[in-house]
Nucleic acid binder design. Structure first.
Lengths: 154, 154
DNA sequence: TCTAATGTAACTACAATGGTTTCACGTAAT
DNA sequence: ATTACGTGAAACCATTGTAGTTACATTAGA
């Protein structure tokens, strides 16, 4: 399996919150950009709120960022939405045979590797902020199509 | 979600194959060490076979390693069993709204980060061989419990 | 008060995983 | 040849997790 879409959706949400006029980015509006259900968005803003990244209150339209995007790393978002469940990125096979030399030690032997592999992945996420992603988006918007995409007369 | 247990089970299987007398490590025997069903093991040895790591033939008990464990990296095993399905480690939310500046670019903006994060994780797996894991296991077997685990008279 | 938005619970649909049964086929020993 | 054992593969089931959906209580503000 793979890491939950909650993660990219949360990033998407944070960017929309940052570029929208206050009170504009309702869960309905965000859901229509993400192409999902408003409740899915509220679940995510709820998690972002519990992590201290946004402030969302019942009855008030649009959540408010509690930090500028440049101070929110992707790792914070990833952790806020619990993108990788409990037990870590790698699943282990439960209760191998304790009467077998391999069975009774395999988990202890593999665990350190699993942990450092997961850490390596998370460190990449830590090096990028949500503002970086937002920057990439405006860059993409400003892109000029190369000539071979232009209409021709041939 | 997390990465399939097929991965640790495959490592477990390879180690058993390497330390067992030829023809001894049947899918039944391996399954009893892993604590699962023999068919699960055969599915995995099948994948390891298609990846060229072992040779398993119908009717012949026990698969045979085609390489020494020291020449099999964890990354090879991970790829052999397709531990992370198609589409990569990170899921993306499908079809965001193309009429929204953020929606139509979010995937392109996040993809490079997802790819390098996944790569970082895989590079760790590439640095370890199955023989390293097997070595850790024998080390664990030889461990001497520290004093505070010893019976006392107090 | 009325409207609009959020928070939350509950339910559903769907997909993926792993376990299980079953059976055909291959090998090897008797 | 027959028998026993093991693998390969298909089919099916149970469980789990994710996301989508409905419904409703609650809150803010006009």
């Amino acid at each position: 399996m793979n890491i939950s879409t909650k993660f990219p959706v949360a990033v998407h949400t944070l960017i929309l919150l940052s570029i929208s006029q206050p009170g504009t980015a309702t869960s309905d509006m965000i859901a229509s950009s993400v192409n999902t259900n408003p409740v899915v968005i509220r679940r995510i803003t709820g998690m972002l709120g519990r992590a201290g990244l946004v402030e969302a209150r019942a009855g008030i339209a649009g959540a408010r960022l509690k930090k500028p995007l440049a101070e929110i790393t992707l790792l914070e978002v990833y952790k806020a939405v619990n993108a990788v469940g409990e037990g870590g990125l790698f699943a282990v096979h439960e209760s191998p045979n304790p009467n077998c030399e391999v069975g009774r030690n395999i988990q202890a032997a593999m665990n350190p590797i699993f942990i450092s592999a997961q850490r390596a992945m998370e460190q990449i996420l830590e090096q990028t902020t949500v503002a970086d992603v937002a920057g990439d988006i405006s860059q993409l918007e400003g892109i000029v199509l190369p000539d071979y995409f232009a209409p021709t007369n041939s």
